[in-house]
Design a protein around this nucleic acid. Structure first.
Lengths: 157, 157
DNA sequence: TGATCGGAGATTATTATAGTCTCCGACTAG
DNA sequence: CTAGTCGGAGACTATAATAATCTCCGATCA
């Protein structure tokens, strides 16, 4: 049901945390290490380590080795989109198997497939949605992107 | 990476097929049986059967038993949304584990979770997107729902 | 009344995800 | 200049979700 992975969840939490430390008013600019985040959010340390490594590889954060090492945002929170985070961890967004078919690859249904084109458009819409929302938007200040909704005025509880 | 399941793929193909038979000009109103669809699209017969049964249970299609039996759309293609189809097969849309937490259930991160609220809003946006697109829209005639995109004018290829 | 259809359950296979373990190399404080 | 702290990387196991198969039942209609 269109679920994002736990690893992506962890990535979002971690980035949120790093961003709030970095731009908070307590100790701004401080690097944050894996252990700190793992303990704060009850995330398995070694799994989180992998996630942060992937984020570093994909240019979301900068790593600093050695004692007192850790991570910093590589760009401003406004320049990091949810889509970028998600794709850093899970690879290219694809709601269907044939989203990224290479030359010569065909699914069993391809010959008469009647849903490929519309699905790719749905995918594109979702991508835009995720790519128009930034880490900054998740920090609580700025209102989030939505498309107009008749029903849902998400009652906070 | 936010993938929909094969079963949902099959559901979409099948509904598309049923709709186009039903409203096509060759034999309008004809019922369509499982075997016909399975063969047309190379879908495992018994798996497709399960999918169609689920769609029938959820009121997307009507079933007719016996020889010359099969399925018909239960409503017009314009009244069947992609969200409804998806949820018939995969259950309620939830991009994260805590989307449908029952009372007393908490994820390990819940205590300090900093991403739940924004993620629920993302989920809501995706839901709206899927619920504003109908089976009719997939039939090729009408333009699909999109949110305005600066970059992507989906070059058809 | 028997061949054709959908309904339903249990069962297996396959793949993706989640989590763990081990070792390496970089760094910096002392 | 070296010991302890940090990230980097790979192999590995465990668990859960998905995909697919098998078997039997009941409805229906020619």
């Amino acid at each position: 049901m269109l679920k994002i992975s736990k690893k992506t969840d962890y990535a979002l939490m971690a980035l949120q945390h790093i961003a709030s430390v970095q731009f908070g008013d307590v100790t701004p600019g401080r690097v944050v290490n894996t252990k700190e985040i793992a303990e704060e959010y009850n995330i398995p340390l070694e799994l989180l380590a992998k996630v942060l490594q992937a984020l570093a590889k994909n240019g979301m954060i900068e790593s600093h080795n050695g004692p007192k090492g850790g991570y910093l945002l590589a760009r401003s929170a406004r320049q990091i989109t949810i889509a970028q985070i998600l794709e850093s961890i899970e690879g290219p967004l694809g709601i269907t198997d044939c989203s990224h078919e290479k030359e010569g690859e065909f699914c069993m249904q391809r010959e008469h497939c009647n849903i490929r084109t519309p699905l790719l458009k749905v995918q594109d819409s979702i991508y835009q949605l995720l790519n128009n929302m930034t880490l900054q938007d998740m920090l609580g200040g700025t209102p989030l992107i939505t498309i107009q909704s008749p029903t849902a005025q998400g009652v906070e509880r």
